[in-house]
Nucleic acid binder design. Structure first.
Length: 608
RNA sequence: GGGGGCGUAGCUCAAUUGGUUAGAGUACCGGACUGUCGAUCCGGUGGUUGCGGGUUCGACCCCCGUCGCCCUCGCCA
């Protein structure tokens, strides 16, 4: 490890880590530094498990041992968990007592001298790899939680992954460029975190939701290939996979089309997964049209670890005696089905009722179902599918005895959402979603706009700068829903991990998009004037993407949420239990900012 | 903003229908022990049952309010 010559090293400094020593080091005199993970007393003999980042090594203190420092046994006898030590000792083989559960298990270190750096109070929870303490306490004492192997592993692999990404992009001539953290607020998108300005009273910076605009300005600047491991901030309600601040691999390229970005990012992801997590991703990543993904998987982020595609039964249903089917088709809807192989016996009537209740939360009225037996179709739709009709249905669904069929009949949006969710639920229940398997894909050509029912207006489906597939579009108002944007998502195992697009680089077209969405020229100037201006002075065609590092790492490591891969995360109310941020500030600070809080005084609010 | 779950010893949990002194494991303290590795054995300290109010002869348990954490819908261009 250290390059420092031995002569310049203090006598207490480690010669090895707690994960280094094997029988090859037998009889060497070594120095280890670390924390006491555990200790076992046997009267005249004490075992101490000494832990550092690299492993755990058993230290033995033997009252009978020769060469031991005076008072050593009494010193070690009163040490406790999490005390920090330097141990000088001799490596010896364990003989019959090898511990096969540890990399250092074939040896132990016979202590000759010990320096105590720090005596620890009993920790509020035990610092063991098997997590038992609740997350609230673990976040409050995060520095203790981070001593545990699962957390350290996550941070180490995360760092390896990010380094691999940096190396890859560096090799591809990308330039790492830092962009402002104090930036301009804009009303579109997520709620901004605001920072008051002292020298501009009454005015505020916003923390960036992403470096989107800055990287586009880098393209205008001719910087060609930009990237940044960028912290982003969004003041919205949180989830297991959302933190108020999170990290993106943000990149942008000039003079490119979709396939240039996708090819490059695919290579980057493969490299990152290999170097960071030792995972070989199957290539190429399939590329789905948005419509195709919705039609086949009922989702714009398909989980490709298993098949069970949505099968279109609309034509079959049109002529059906089953009114729910034929009625839905007549009303302009569709009928689709899923064939769950061998699932018939796993789903009782009750289990199917639960699935029905499940889809109702997505707006579906229910599920039609059938079990396939040697005799044909059984279940809710059986009486409409006897004889030839049944045989036709079975053939259409590719079903065999033992299979469970589930159908949705409604407007396409509802059918896709409901069956897409059922597909995932069945996939989980049938054990088809192996967390050790990783399957990636791209989804392209998203709708340009979507209708916001609450606000009764069209809005961006992706971001305001995504180019329409049709460069020459004159008027978006005719059929807004038909316009596709040159946006793409990167998806792994059903998680959306990245999103990007080819951008608009012509100010006139950008203005047209804003106009359509009812953003007045005055608002455009106030919020994005500097971007529109930049485009006047020679903007290259360009596009890029941003990938969520936290989600990527969490998924790769099979962790439940992103808090497990962030060193110092916040709670779901965006509170930092460790530092207790956010906090009140002094009246003096507020006066300087010319800010007056209207929040109820702290003493008025009830507290625990 | 809405819905759901949780809150009991430092930690992880238990406590019958509302009923006697709120228990166990672990940690911690003391003792025994020379081959343990989740050591074992003996003994001990440790409680505002999140907080406030209410119902009741009696509340960890029921009711109201409140705080915190987790999940989720909305939200996250």
């Amino acid at each position: 490890m250290s390059e420092t010559p031995k002569s310049q090293r203090s006598s207490w400094q480690r010669t090895h880590t707690c994960g280094d020593l094997t029988s090859a080091n037998q009889d060497q005199e070594v120095v280890l530094n670390g924390w006491i993970e555990n200790h076992r007393h046997h009267g005249q003999l004490i075992f101490v498990d000494l832990r550092d980042r690299y492993g755990v090594t058993q230290i033995v203190v033997d009252q009978e041992a020769a060469g031991m420092a005076d008072g050593l046994f009494e010193l070690v006898r009163r040490l406790g968990q999490e005390d920090v030590l330097s141990v000088r000792g001799r490596v010896r083989a364990r003989g019959q007592n090898v511990n096969k559960n540890r990399s250092t298990g074939e040896i132990e270190v016979l202590a000759l001298a010990v320096t105590v750096f720090s005596e620890a109070e009993p920790p509020p929870f035990e610092v063991l790899d098997a997590a038992e303490a609740n997350e609230e306490l673990r976040m409050q004492y995060r520095y203790l939680d981070l001593r545990r192997r699962p957390l350290q592993e996550a941070l180490v692999k995360r760092a390896r992954f990010v380094t691999a990404i940096r190396n890859y992009l560096q090799d591809q001539r990308f330039v790492d460029i830092e962009t402002p953290i104090l930036t301009k607020s804009s009303p579109e998108g997520a709620r901004d975190y605001l920072v008051p300005s002292r020298v501009h009273p009454g005015k505020f910076y916003a923390l960036p939701q992403s470096p989107q605009i800055w990287k586009q300005l880098c393209m205008v600047a001719g910087l060609d290939r930009y990237y940044q491991i960028a912290r982003c901030f969004r003041d919205e309600d949180l989830r297991a996979d959302r933190q108020p601040e999170f990290t993106q691999i943000d990149l942008e390229m000039s003079f490119v089309e979709e396939h240039d970005v996708l090819d490059l990012v695919e290579g980057m992801v493969v490299h990152g997964m290999r170097e960071g997590f030792g995972v070989e991703l199957p290539q190429p990543f399939p590329r789905f049209d948005f419509e195709q993904a919705m039609a086949l998987y009922g989702s714009d982020k398909p989980d490709l670890r298993f098949e069970m595609l949505l099968i279109d039964c609309t034509e079959l249903a049109r002529k059906s005696a089953f009114k729910v089917f034929s009625g839905a088709v007549e009303a302009g809807g569709i009928v689709k089905g899923l064939c769950a192989k061998g699932a018939a016996e796993k789903y009782s009537r009750k289990g199917i009722d639960e699935l029905t209740a499940f889809v109702q939360q997505f707006g579906a009225k229910g599920l039609a179902w059938a079990k396939i037996t040697d005799k044909g179709v059984e279940g809710s739709i059986a009486k409409f599918y006897e004889g030839d009709a049944g045989a036709e249905l079975i053939a259409h669904m590719g079903a065999a005895p033992g299979d469970l069929l589930l159908f949705g009949a409604d407007q396409p949006k509802v059918v896709h959402k409901a069956l897409g969710e059922v597909r995932l639920k069945l996939g989980t229940a049938l054990g088809l979603r192996d967390p050790k398997q990783f399957r990636c894909c791209w989804v392209l050509n998203f709708p340009m706009f979507e209708w916001n029912e609450d606000k009764q207006r069209w809005q961006f489906a992706h971001n305001p700068f995504s180019a329409p597939v049709d460069w020459d579009v004159q008027d978006f108002t005719a059929e807004p829903a038909r316009h596709r944007s040159r946006a793409y998502d990167f998806v792994m195992n059903g998680w959306e991990l990245g999103s990007g697009s080819i951008r608009i680089h012509r100010p006139a077209l950008q203005a047209k998009v804003f106009d359509f969405l009812g953003i007045t020229p005055e608002q455009q100037r106030a919020n994005f004037g500097y971007v529109l201006d930049a485009y006047k002075y020679g903007a290259p065609p360009h596009g890029g993407i941003a990938l969520g590092v936290d989600r990527f790492v969490a998924l790769a490591l099979g962790r439940e949420g992103i808090r497990d891969v962030i060193a110092f995360p916040k709670t779901s109310t965006a509170f930092d239990l460790l530092s207790e941020a956010p906090s009140l500030v002094s009246d003096e600070q507020l006066r300087e900012l010319q800010i007056l809080s209207t929040a109820p005084k702290a003493e008025d609010a009830a507290d625990s």
